Amino acid sequence: MKTWLATSTPVTPAKAALPQTAHPPKGKGKGKGAGAPPGKRSRSEVHTGGLANLRTLAVATAELSLQSAKHIRLLSSIAIVTLLVPKHPVVESAAAVEQFGDAGEPDIRRWAILVSTLADEQKLPGDIRQVLSEHVNEVSSPEQLQDVVHICHCAPTSNDQSMFKVQLQVTTALERVAKAVVAACVVLGATVKYGPAPRTAAERLVASSLKQA
């Protein structure tokens, strides 16, 4: 067999026929019937999906705003003392201070008016007036109150002009004086408000819109 293999003429195997393939249509590869690339959405699908995402984002933003507003009202009720005081020359004088000037200046002026006028109010008990008078005598310039009086607001309520809302926030250095101010206002008929304030009109509107969404 080896001799035969050595002397025989080698047979060249025939080449296998290549499979015929269809030629792609000329142009930019977009022949008749060619579809969109896989994974690519049509414009209508993109538009519909965008609106759905926008609605989801709007609802989430509204819910977050309500949650934030609730937390702010809760924290404010902890940090700020709120009173409803019937119309009286003391609160009318404090409310007349305009909300202009340097940071904190209107609050300091309102605080000074409240303390000084309450100290002269004859209807108040002597111990309350004494605390207020001592504070009046100790403070000789507004600069002494810049870092201790943070908030002192006074304005008529929106639904009843004969009732004034007074809000106070001071440091612990003035805690004794602030308690005297609150006690004095209570003698004049004030009511101390506890807990978070009611929801604002904007909060109610957002909550109502969410129910309809």
Rank of each mutant, 00 (worst) to 15 (best):
M1R: 08
A6H: 13
L18R: 14
P19N: 07
T21S: 07
A22I: 12
P25Q: 12
P25W: 08
K30R: 15
G31Q: 04
G35F: 06
S44A: 15
H47Y: 05
H47C: 03
G50I: 01
L51C: 10
L54P: 02
R55L: 11
A58M: 09
A58Q: 13
A60R: 10
L64S: 13
S65F: 11
S65W: 10
L66E: 01
S77Q: 03
A79E: 08
T82N: 05
L83R: 03
V85Y: 04
P89H: 03
A96C: 03
R109L: 10
L118G: 02
A119R: 01
Q122A: 11
Q122K: 14
K123R: 11
V136I: 07
P142C: 02
Q146K: 15
C152A: 10
P156E: 06
N159V: 00
N159P: 00
Q161N: 07
Q161E: 14
Q167N: 03
T171A: 02
T172L: 11
L174I: 08
E175G: 01
A178N: 10
V186S: 06
V187Y: 00
T191A: 13
V192I: 09
A197F: 02
A202V: 10
A202M: 12
R204K: 15
L205H: 11
V206W: 08
A207H: 10
S208T: 11
S209L: 15
Q212D: 15
